[in-house]
Amino acid sequence: MEFLLQLYADQTRWSTLPPDQAHAEMGAYAAYTQALHDAGVFVAGERLAPPSSAASVRVSADGKASVVDGPYPETKEQLGGYYVIDVADHDAAVSWAARCPGASHGTVEVRPIMAVPTAA
């Protein structure tokens, strides 16, 4: 069963982190990612560029598009990265989320990915 782990955190925090702490944190993510690989549950995972680089797009019912700078919605904790993991069940996904360094300085949201029946 595939799950999306969304890593939410205060994205301004990263830029204010002293270099040695930032380095330690990268090490923590590297170790976590490696552990996901070693456990055979890693499907995908990336770190995202800062929310300031985001653009949010909407198209209304009458076809009018609006594009605004920044993420939607604007909150203190922003999506900063994600993992997709393939594990046996929801409990296992939650326990992997707890191990994610992002859970120690933000929130990791665990969501099952809906299985789409594959066409024959």
Partner: peptide
């Protein structure tokens, strides 16, 4: 050590194990 750190839930334990690796 790195593997153990990657499996840690407690940030203090994770930091300790990464320090051992370093």
């Amino acid at each position: 050590f790195e593997r153990a750190a990657g499996l840690s839930v407690d940030p203090a334990v994770r930091g300790y194990l990464l320090g051992c690796a370093r």
